[in-house]
Structure formats: structure tokens, C-alpha cells
Amino acid sequence: MSFRNTPPDDDFGGGAPPDRRICARIWAARIDYLFLVPGLLIFGAFIFWPLVASLYYSTLDWSGFDANKLFVGLQNYAALLSDPFFVAAMQRSFVFTLATVPAQMIISLVLAIILNNRLLKLSGLFRTMIFLPVVTPVAVIAIVMALMLSPFNGPINGVLKDTGVIQRAIDFLGSPDLVLSSLAGIYVWKWTGVTLIYWLAALQTVPDELYEAARIEGVKGWQTALFIILPIIAPFAFVIALISAISALNVFPLIQATTQGGPFFASEVMEVFIFRTAFAPPPGMFPQLGYASAAGVLFGLAIMALTVLQIVALRRARRKDPAHG
């Protein structure tokens, strides 16, 4: 996103002389600052302040219910690193991301290349259908999928049994070995529509003449896709992969709604761990807001590392394609 540099001629406020002193410039822009107030209040209260506060909370031993805040320094962090639940949740988050992102990207890329064909009359309808799960709330998806995947007469088990693929019903969401894979499948189903839109946007940058040239040269459809289109949209792949990865790390709603991290913590990803520690501790235990905050900070740092990668990727993509900004 590039912004045109506008010359400093903020006469909107009236009165102020054309002075380069900073106070005068601030005074001249007073109306602009007024415009910023609502946005800054929201940004400050719900994005920036929580960021700073999380760092502070992470150094406390604090249940959140009382004013009993005990400063413990970095003890929460030390305890986390030797907490098997934390380590397992962090691993699960990244395994989940590594499993879903490639699947989501490949499925949506194939669909995008097919749907991008302007002669395909129903492509708009197909795109809408693929996109429907995206606009469906996770709580609803959780219910629908619990029904679909139910080992008791659920339709998917029914089909698998009728076609002879399996003998006994599979408990997709109730088996600790299968639950994360099932959730990954549901996740890919829900979010492929978004990646599809990203790819379609990337495909818009491929000039029509190229398709035409390929057709005249007699290049086959899949060859066009592989050797002509892919190299052009490759710079976008990096950006799309990172956006997808970051959203896969934020999978909390889907998992909390579908399995609540169960069975036996087998699907407890990072944010489910944070939620459980901070707001929904097991019976007989106190919430630990400080501890959960520290987990959040460590997770946030991991994601920030990805964000840095993202910026590098954006720069690279833009250098290759200066027309886009």
C-alpha cells in the first residue's frame, strides 16, 4: 500500500502561518487530529494497549479474580517452557499450520485456474458455492460437522460403509489420533474460499495476451498453467502462504467450538491453551491470567517472526512486479 506524499499545505485549520516549526504544523493539522480521535481510541483501547498490557500481565502471578497481583519476573516464561501442555499446544499449532496451508493453497490454486476461464459460464456460481463455508460462523460449522462426522449414523460414515471402504464407523472427532486431522480437513473446507479469492486476484495480473499467445502457439491447457501462469503469480504465492499460515495459527474458534481441545487435549492448539488457562480452568483450579498472558506473548512472538517474513516477501513481490502497489 503506497501513499502519495502530499505537500504540507494544511490550511484547513485556517490561521496558521506557513511555518516549518513542528508546533505550528501540529496546530495547522488540528482538524486532522480531531478526525483521528475515534479511530485512535478504538485502536488504542483494543489493539495497542492490550499489546503492552499483555507484556506486563505476563510477569504477574495473578488469578484475575482479585487484586492480588504478585510480580514474579520471568518465572511464568520459565514455567511455560517446561510445561508439557504448553509445548504440545505450540507444536500442534505449527503442525496444524504445516498440514493445512499447502492443502488449502493447492486446492484453491487448481480451482482458481479453472474458474478464471471467462468462457466457463457458471464460474461465478461455483465461486460463490466454494465461498459459502467462509461466511458460515464456526459455531454452526461445529454442529454441522459433528453431525456429518458422527459415528452414529452420520452421513459420511454411512457413505464410507455403504461403499465398503470401512467396516466399522470411524469416530473422526472422538479419537485422539484422528481428531487433529479431521479438524484440519474441516479447516481447509471452511477457508479454501478465501485463498481462492486471493489466487483469482493474482491471476488478474496475468495479461490476456499471454493466454492468446499460448493458444496460438498450440500450448496445451495444463502446460499453459504450469509454465506460463505459475511463474507470473509465483511472487503472490509467498504472500498468500503467509496470510494463510497466520490465519491457520489463529484457529481457536473452530477448535474451541468443535472439540474444545479434546478428546484428552489431543486438539488443544495454542489459543485453546490460553483460553483454558485464563478463562476456563478445569474444575478445582484457579484461572491463571499471568501465566496465560505469558503463553500469549510467546505465541505472539512466534507469529511476529512470521510477520517479518511477510514484509520481506511483500518487498520481494513488489520488486518483481512494480506495477502493483
Partner: peptide, 15 residues
Amino acid sequence: LFIPQGFTIIPVFEF
């Protein structure tokens, strides 16, 4: 832009 919601939810609630 890419701060996870799990990072900020506790202070948002406290705020």
C-alpha cells in the same frame, strides 16, 4: 496487523 486474538483477549477483557 497479525497479532493473534489470543494475545490480546485478556487485557481487552480487563480493560
